[in-house]
Design a protein around this nucleic acid. Structure first.
Length: 405
DNA sequence: TCTGGGGTCCTAGGACCC
DNA sequence: TCTGGGGTCCTAGGACCC
């Protein structure tokens, strides 16, 4: 939102629970990643802090647009996350720093999104370069490590904490610190073999990547998911079985839709329910994993299984705070049932039914057509709170951005 | 009152096999 | 008294990512 530029602002998680994205201005107020909104809300009066509910449909759409623009700059692109993408720039003859500037310019022009570009001989170094591009305000958002001298690179790497390296999390950073390794440069000097034996294969690769030896391949094709999760924290405590049935049915619908979109079937379902670990109430949580005899992506079949499983683990007398489903043992849909089993008319009908369901929901909006177990009422009782949501400027006809001349 | 959601990879250890 | 060796598969849990 260009109009909000310069304001301290955070994007809030589901239920407006905690801050999951912060502008520099918000960071300057000392707001940590994951800070609960109720603890920082007072800053809205005193410091002009804004908190906005997450609007993932909008972010997903803007991300697609941005990735399309970036993809114009290389035949080989890996979309790594909602806001990051790797490009193979092998063979680019132009000055890479200028090339990076061009990428930034076009993304800004076509989507309004400000970006930074980092270049290096490995993915880990490119990520590091991107980090530098963000931090060094006089670099205009682009950093090509190849344009730096060895000494310059060493000096810059010495100034960055090892925790910033891609693949080094809190735990590993702590252990590295205990060995006297504090900066990125320290880590790059570590013997990769030692990193491998004393930590893990993964860290061994990371060290080699920091030394400029590619060990993490560029994944062009996004692989189909191996597990699909749909879960939510509830807006209010949930106590009854019917409410949980509604919620689980909706999660199944979401998860199975994702499964069908990647042309897969699953043969294992896990469901879970739990109370809030943050409350002083008596606690209960449980999960149940069920193998189904025939792998499918049938929402109705999975709903049945989920509701039966729920009956087994549900205990009355608790304030449930979260529930979810996970689909596992996922494989491609093609040829499984058809080859191993005679195609039953019933199965074919079901596949047709699911296709129709998806088509209707794509056209008339999510939830236009749904199973009876999801229900029409009670949703307010558990569905997430989103009191501070921005309009779906590009994803909802009612909320399309209009410009007045 | 109020604390997110969705993923991946790797490893160790147990079950089981011949 | 002595009690093999080598392998695979599965699962739970830990670590990381955004």
């Amino acid at each position: 939102m260009p109009a909000l530029k310069g304001r301290p602002l955070v994007v809030l998680s589901n239920n407006d629970g905690c801050a999951i994205a912060r502008t520099d201005e918000a960071k300057a107020l000392g707001i940590k990643m994951g800070a609960p909104w109720f603890q920082i809300r007072h800053l809205s009066e005193s410091q002009g802090l804004m908190g906005l509910s997450a609007n993932f449909a909008l972010y997903g759409d803007m991300s697609d647009r941005m990735m399309t623009v970036i993809g114009r700059f290389s035949p080989v692109q890996e979309v790594y996350s909602i806001d990051e993408s790797f490009l193979d720039l092998t063979g680019i003859r132009d000055d890479l720093t200028k090339y990076g500037q061009q990428i930034r310019k076009e993304v800004l022009r076509d989507t309004g999104i400000p970006t930074c570009v980092g270049m290096g001989p490995t993915k880990t170094l490119a990520k590091l370069a991107n980090h530098m591009a963000k931090k060094k305000t006089d670099w205009d958002g682009v950093c090509d490590l190849g344009s730096l001298s060895r000494q310059e690179l060493a000096r810059l790497m010495s100034d960055i904490e090892v925790r910033e390296v891609w693949g080094v999390g809190r735990r590993i950073a702590k252990r590295l610190n205990e060995m006297g390794i504090y900066s990125v440069f320290d880590l790059a000097k570590l013997d990769p073999e030692k990193a491998r034996t004393e930590f893990s294969i993964v860290l061994g690769k990371t060290v080699q990547e920091l030394r400029g030896i590619p060990r993490i391949a560029l994944d062009e094709m996004s692989e189909p998911k191996k597990q699909i999760i749909s879960s939510r924290s509830f807006g209010l405590p949930v106590t009854t079985l019917p409410q949980l049935e509604n919620a689980l049915s909706e999660f199944i619908a979401t998860a199975c839709n994702k499964l069908r979109r990647q042309d897969s079937v699953a043969s294992t379902l896990q469901i879970f329910i739990r109370t809030s670990p943050f409350r002083k109430d008596k606690q209960y949580g449980n999960c149940l994993t069920v193998n189904v005899s025939v792998a499918s992506s049938d929402s109705l079949a999975f709903t049945k299984v989920a509701l039966r499983a729920l009956q087994q683990i549900f205990r009355p007398g608790y304030n449930y705070a979260k529930a979810g489903v996970m689909l596992m043992d996922i494989e491609p849909a093609v040829g499984i049932q058809q080859e191993l089993f005679p195609v039953e008319e019933e199965v074919e009908k079901r596949v047709g039914l699911m296709n129709t369901l998806d088509a209707i929901n794509a056209r008339f909006g999510r939830g236009a057509l749904k199973t009876g177990s999801i229900g029409f009422h009670d949703r307010e009782n558990w569905y997430m709170r989103q009191e501070r949501k921005t309009p779906g400027y590009t994803t909802n006809w009612e909320e399309v951005l209009t410009v007045r001349a």
